[in-house]
Nucleic acid binder design. Structure first.
Lengths: 209, 209
DNA sequence: ACGCTAGTCTTACGGCGTAAGAAACGTCAA
DNA sequence: TTGACGTTTCTTACGCCGTAAGACTAGCGT
């Protein structure tokens, strides 16, 4: 019987809290143990190694994205994209992980399968539908990385700072765009919406029903 | 005068070689020093810290992508996307870096500025044009990550392996798509082309000339 | 009361980034 | 030739990291 009442789930939950609070660079087995009032090596009873902790974190995030593929496919696919983005922005520290690690975590596969099946019912081939889902997913990850991604151990020189030090003579258009709001949350939102629309508008089944 | 004939450039070149050969996880100051026949601390004479090495690597990759923004904007923007992808695929180990680190390295800014200026000459606003460039760039990074991205210290369970262990009863569409070529180089290429086309087709200036 | 097992801790190893400063080298003036 | 000096390199050390090996301990069923 456990003396500290631990479990794989509690370890992962503590890891997520730690990462959200201090960033992914701060996630070490020793700190995670301390978080749970336990020595580092104790964690290895619940988790084979640190990589498994990272995988678990990804799976947690991915699993929270569930979309019911009913109605017009462009609509729920859009909702899917929006849901991924929301989840990623809720835990920006996980972004480098989600982006880098093979996305095929078990938690997300079921969702993917359901969407692919729904797409095939609307005239897409199996491969074609999955390519579409993949295209949307990779677009969202790419966009959100640019929006909120920061390197683990990197002090973030914010876009605002870079903007200050930019020579208007050398980069006139860039400076103008920065003044017009490039890099603001609204800018990201708008760019996301427009590009997503373009993507969904342009991707249609090759052999419609 | 140098006794080992080093320089910031040679350090970066050796770093790139090491990273290409053994992956980003293998890049340590000690190994990089050994690569150059020198102790680790010697590198700190040419580089302030390890982060600067990583930044330098990114800048090297980004700087190699140069596109002449002449002719129809959709065409050279497409060439830009293709060039980024080619460069990233040539050094896949750099992908996690490029994706994660603020993309505004000095090496790439000039290219961005030139493209934005060309777009404005074709009826885009300054902000609008940069959003377009950004959208394309983030799309390419996202796609290429999914195509070739592997985590630093992660042994890659290839898509092929995952495919084997997939229950056709549980994931029928997925399995069918995998059999139809999901995840092959051709699949990635095709998905890239189709999504890029959709993106460029759908993104047009709001206030045409 | 005793053993068993699940859970925890201790110790240790090799690696990491890098701070501080000592040491060796090449150059050039005296 | 010598000596001083700035440039480049090395030595040592500190505090972190992931984790292998194995010793301890708390609570259970008998």
């Amino acid at each position: 019987m456990p003396r500290a009442g631990l479990s794989r789930e509690k370890v992962l939950a503590a890891a997520l809290a730690l990462v959200d609070r201090e960033g992914i660079a701060a996630l070490s087995m020793r700190k995670l143990g301390a978080e749970l009032g336990v020595e580092a090596m104790t964690l290895y009873y619940y988790v084979p190694n640190k990589g498994a902790v990272l995988d678990g974190l990804i799976d947690m995030a991915v699993s929270r994205v569930t979309v019911e593929p009913v109605g017009p496919w462009r609509e729920w696919l859009r909702a899917f994209a929006v849901a991924i983005r929301r989840e990623l922005l809720a835990h920006p520290a996980l972004l480098p992980l989600v982006a880098t690690r093979p996305v095929m975590a078990p938690g997300g596969l079921a969702t993917v399968e359901r969407m692919a099946a729904a797409l095939r019912a609307e005239g897409f081939g199996a491969l074609e539908g999955l390519q579409l889902v993949n295209a949307v997913a990779t677009f969202v990850v790419g966009h959100t990385l640019a929006e909120a991604g920061r390197t683990p151990g990197h002090d973030d020189p914010d876009v605002a700072d870079v903007m200050e030090g930019l020579d208007p003579g050398e980069y006139p258009v860039l400076v103008e765009a920065l003044r017009a709001g490039l890099g603001t949350p609204e800018d990201h939102q708008e760019r996301f919406d427009r590009a997503l629309d373009a993507l969904l508008r342009g991707l249609a089944p090759r052999t419609p029903l």
